[in-house]
């Protein structure tokens, strides 16, 4: 019994949950506005693009890979789709636009997978290369101007709320409908990782590629799946991002890969593969979003934001490294 309790509280997710709750209490004590419904909805809205991308990257990390091209893919999906929808008015339906952007993302993700799998190239360098090719091609051949007059269906999407409330003080709080995409992706990926052959295969390939190959996992299919999924989710995020900020800027999202990697790693995903959970990733996203949105609330200038993110990444990765080592020492001692 005690050992079970200890195991429950010793889990990375529990530690993370504790830190997140503690942080929320401290921020709430410093500024009660943190607890308002409006702030909660705003934080949820910010977490949608970051969250979907983190879940996509989680699967890539579990399989032992990495992807830093997804911000470029998201921007490509977003900008090409919006340009297309403005030229061809008949395409202007939300499902069609989401499908186009997701398909663009899927194609680019599969391109990564082909280079990584068939030429056995390191994923970091491949996606570094594809990221500059995608960004360069987008800006050179498609356009550089920010689209401010978005297709009407995207604007309608950005105004659709799941839940609206008028607060006592007259202000209104609204929960964006795009949160459903986030929830759907999280549940689907969590189930896939736990119950499907391809999901179990991602863990197996990440833990030991040669062993996974020998027991009969189809490594090619797993590679195509993880990078394809990452690309497709990035394409989806492109449209959601455009709807949130109400424009489509082809220079946008630069550097987002670092925030997403940080969220996934804080959530306990191992950069060397084989370990990571959707729950952990969600908590990592929550911690990042709360920190990001609340430094201003507690009166710290925004310049401190990066310092804190850096410290959190360092501390959380150090804790993970130390815990893995003591866990291994414990196994050997037994």
């Amino acid at each position: 019994m005690t050992s079970r309790v200890r195991r429950l509280f010793g889990r990375h997710e529990m530690v993370l949950l504790g830190v997140t709750v503690l942080l929320s209490i401290v921020i709430g004590a410093l500024n009660p506005a943190f607890y308002s419904l409006q702030n909660a909805f705003d934080l949820l809205k910010t977490s949608v693009p970051l969250g979907i991308l983190t879940i996509g990257l989680l699967v890539v990390l579990i399989s032992g890979g990495i992807d830093i091209s997804f911000p470029a893919i998201a921007v490509a999906g977003m900008y090409i789709t919006c340009t297309l929808a403005i030229d061809v008015r008949s395409l202007d339906h939300l499902p069609a636009l989401l499908a186009i952007s997701t398909a663009i993302g899927l194609a680019l993700g599969l391109f990564n997978a082909v280079l990584i799998h068939f030429f056995r190239l390191p994923a970091l360098i491949v996606t570094l290369g594809t990221a500059s090719v995608i960004r360069g091609a987008l800006l050179e051949f498609v356009g550089t101007r920010t689209i401010t007059n978005l297709p009407p269906s995207i604007i309608a999407f950005s105004r659709t709320n799941l839940f609206e409330a008028t607060l006592a003080n007259g202000a209104s709080a609204a929960l964006t409908v795009s949160i459903l995409f986030f929830a759907g992706v999280a549940i689907a990926v969590a189930l896939a990782l736990r119950y499907t052959v391809i999901g179990r295969g991602a863990y197996a390939v990440g833990a030991d590629l040669a062993a996974a190959e020998r027991v009969g996992f189809n490594v090619r299919r797993i590679h195509l799946f993880v990078y394809g999924l990452m690309g497709a989710l990035a394409g989806l995020v492109g449209i959601i991002h455009a709807s949130i900020i109400r424009n489509a800027n082809p220079l946008d999202l630069d550097g987002l890969e670092l925030t997403v990697i940080a969220a996934a790693v804080i959530g306990g995903a191992s950069i060397t593969g084989g370990r990571g959970t959707v729950t952990g990733a969600l908590l990592g996203v929550a911690l990042m979003v709360i920190m990001d949105g609340s430094l201003v609330l507690v009166g710290l200038p925004s310049q401190w934001h990066q310092v804190f993110i850096g410290l959190v990444v360092l501390v959380s990765t150090s804790i993970t490294a130390l815990r893995t080592r003591s866990a291994r020492a414990g196994e050997i001692a037994r």
Binding site: L258, I261, A262, V265, Q303, W304, H305, Q306, V307, F308, I309, G310, L311, V312, V313, L314, T317
Partner: peptide, 9 residues
């Protein structure tokens, strides 16, 4: 990755 953010910050 962490110190990149830290030093830039």
């Amino acid at each position: 990755l962490g110190t990149l953010q830290l030093f830039t910050g």
